[in-house]
Every structure is written in structure tokens, then in C-alpha cells.
């Protein structure tokens, strides 16, 4: 027990001394990494904020952006990440026609069967199929990726959220901040960098101060400037790719978001009028009654 206390103390002193030294050198990031490591509290840096078109009470998806995001997903992410809850038919939300969706789906092969002879076979995907997984099963996915299967992307934009902390989480009720998922994905994609001098990362992992669970992650930097060609003249930069694919993943996780907010507005207007009418009625009923 004494040994344990002593070692914890000396570790603390070391860390304290180290952070003072770093602060003197002005290496803020290194200090932040060490602080996070000491408190076991990640990410090292809070996610950056983007002005999403789908934020706020009147938010809706930018279809051109979703189409670009789909392109990034198809050409980059889908090599490792499945999206098995999303059906091709729902891509009509992105502004594609039925024919375009059919053509899009037919680019993929899916397994079907068994046929009359009891054989499984592959065929071209149709709109009612879901995005096929790049791996036959989770075990294969894990085996191909150092033992950790890449997570499915259908819900990733809702399944990741960095804690906002007090008192920000109270303000969020009034500002309707619900974009911590896409903000996180954007920050992670644009956050890869060389670790600050003196910070070691485990072998096979890549430093990223925005990663939610540690200072580095197994996935290498997945995308670079100019990697995906856009046909609508949008800048072919990492920053643009990251924004587009984050927006697309938000759509994949919450396809009915615009409908939800539109319905919400009508409900709020109705309830406001209803409440006002009840208020007036109540006032007149109580007018001659002291209470």
C-alpha cells in the first residue's frame, strides 16, 4: 500500500513537473495531452464547431452537400466501414431520381439466396437492398484491422458525443445544440497531426487530440486534400470533405430530421395559440372569483 501511494505521488510530481516545464515552453497541446492522460479524460481537445445547415429550429439538409458526402463515403470510408441500416431507396432524400438510385445500387454486389438448387449467389443490388458490408462478417473485419472491427456508420453521428460539461449543457437546451456527433466526426477527420515533441503514442496507432477515447487511434488518417473529385466545383480540400461526409453521416443516422423540425414548428405554433386561448378563457372564468 505504501509503495502504491509513493508511486502515485511520484507519478503526480513527475507529471506536475513535466506540465510546468511544458507550460514554460508554451507547448499547449502537449500540456493538454498530459492533462487528459492524468485525468483519464478524453478527448484531449473539445470538438470544433461547424455551422451545419441542419442545425437550429428550421434546419434542413443541403442536398448537394449530402451528395458530395455520399461520394466521399463511397470512395473512401466504405472500404472499411459498413452502413448496414441504410437502404439505397432512401438515397432519393439526397435529390436523386428513382433511375439514378437504381443505377447507384447496381454498382454494388450483394449475396442472395438460397436459390432453387440451394445455392447462395451474388447479384446486383436493387434499391430495396442496404449498403453491403466490405467484410463478410465482424470477425473478418476485425482480422483485417488489427483485431478491432471498424464501426458501422449507420448511426455513428448519433453514437458519438463528447460531454459538454457544466454549464454548457444547460445552455444547450435553449440553443438546441444537437450537432455534437457531426462536430466530432469533422474534428476527428481534420485532427490528425504529428504528436507534439515528447508525446509517445502506442505502436500502430495515430495521434489525434480529438479522438474520444484516447490520445491516438488505430485508424490512420483516412483522407487527404484532392483525394475525391467533386463535379460541382466545391473545393477539393480535406476540410470540405470532412464537412460533407459528416453531414452525410448525420443524414444516415437521422434521415427524418428535416421532417421532424418542420412538424415541430407546426406543433409549437399550434400549442402557442392553444395555450393563449386557454389563458384568456381561464382569466375570464376567474375574473369574478377571488382565489
Amino acid at each position: 500500500m505504501k509503495k502504491l501511494v509513493a508511486s502515485i505521488l511520484s507519478l503526480g510530481i513527475l507529471a506536475g513537473a513535466a506540465s510546468i516545464a511544458v507550460a514554460e515552453e508554451g507547448h499547449d497541446l502537449k500540456a493538454a495531452v498530459e492533462h487528459a492522460e492524468k485525468a483519464l479524460h478524453y478527448p484531449v481537445l473539445k470538438p470544433k464547431h461547424i455551422n451545419w445547415s441542419f442545425a437550429g429550429p428550421f434546419g434542413k439538409y443541403d442536398k448537394a452537400q449530402l451528395q458530395r458526402g455520399l461520394k466521399v463515403y463511397k470512395e473512401v470510408c466504405s472500404a472499411c466501414h459498413s452502413m448496414n441500416l441504410v437502404a439505397f431507396r432512401t438515397l432519393e432524400d439526397l435529390g436523386y431520381s428513382e433511375e439514378q438510385v437504381k443505377a447507384l445500387a447496381s454498382e454494388y454486389e450483394v449475396q442472395d439466396g438460397p436459390n432453387g438448387d440451394g445455392e447462395m449467389f451474388t447479384r446486383k443490388a436493387i434499391p430495396s437492398d442496404h449498403f453491403p458490408s466490405p467484410y463478410p462478417n465482424t470477425e473478418a473485419a476485425a482480422a483485417a484491422n488489427n483485431g478491432a472491427a471498424p464501426p458501422d456508420f449507420s448511426l455513428i453521428a448519433k453514437a458519438r458525443g463528447v460531454e459538454r460539461g457544466f454549464p454548457t449543457f444547460i445552455f444547450d437546451i435553449f440553443t438546441q445544440y444537437q450537432e455534437s456527433g457531426p462536430d466530432y466526426i469533422y474534428s476527428l477527420l481534420t485532427g490528425y497531426q504529428e504528436p507534439p515533441a515528447g508525446v509517445e503514442v502506442p505502436e500502430g496507432t495515430h495521434f489525434n487530440p480529438y479522438f474520444i477515447a484516447a490520445k491516438s487511434l488505430a485508424m490512420p488518417k483516412p483522407i487527404e486534400d484532392g483525394q475525391v473529385t467533386y463535379d460541382d466545383g466545391s473545393p477539393q480540400t480535406l476540410d470540405q470533405y470532412a464537412q460533407d461526409v459528416s453531414a452525410f453521416l448525420m443524414w444516415a443516422a437521422e434521415p427524418h430530421l428535416p421532417e421532424r423540425k418542420r412538424t415541430g414548428f407546426m406543433v409549437m405554433v399550434f400549442l402557442a395559440i392553444f395555450t393563449a386561448l386557454i389563458y384568456v378563457t381561464k382569466k375570464s372564468v376567474y375574473a369574478n372569483k377571488e382565489h
Binding site: 429550429p57 448519433k158 444547450d172 437546451i173 438546441q176 445544440y177 444537437q178 421532424r260 423540425k261 412538424t263 415541430g264 414548428f265 406543433v267 409549437m268 400549442l271 402557442a272 392553444f274 395555450t275 386557454i278 389563458y279 378563457t281 381561464k282 372564468v285 376567474y286 372569483k289 382565489h291
Partner: peptide, 27 residues
């Protein structure tokens, strides 16, 4: 008397509830 007061309380409550359902359902 009580019906109307209850109705007013309930409809204000429903507005807050709707705020969460439609604008921050995962909060």
C-alpha cells in the same frame, strides 16, 4: 375552475415536451 387551470398547466408543459421531441430528442 380546476379544469381550466389544469389545461393551462398541461399545455405549457406540452410545449416544453414538444421542444425536446422535435428539436433535441436525444438530449
Amino acid at each position: 375552475y380546476a379544469t381550466l387551470k389544469d389545461a393551462l398547466g398541461v399545455s405549457v408543459f406540452l410545449m416544453v415536451y414538444a421542444w425536446f421531441i422535435f428539436y433535441m430528442p436525444n438530449y
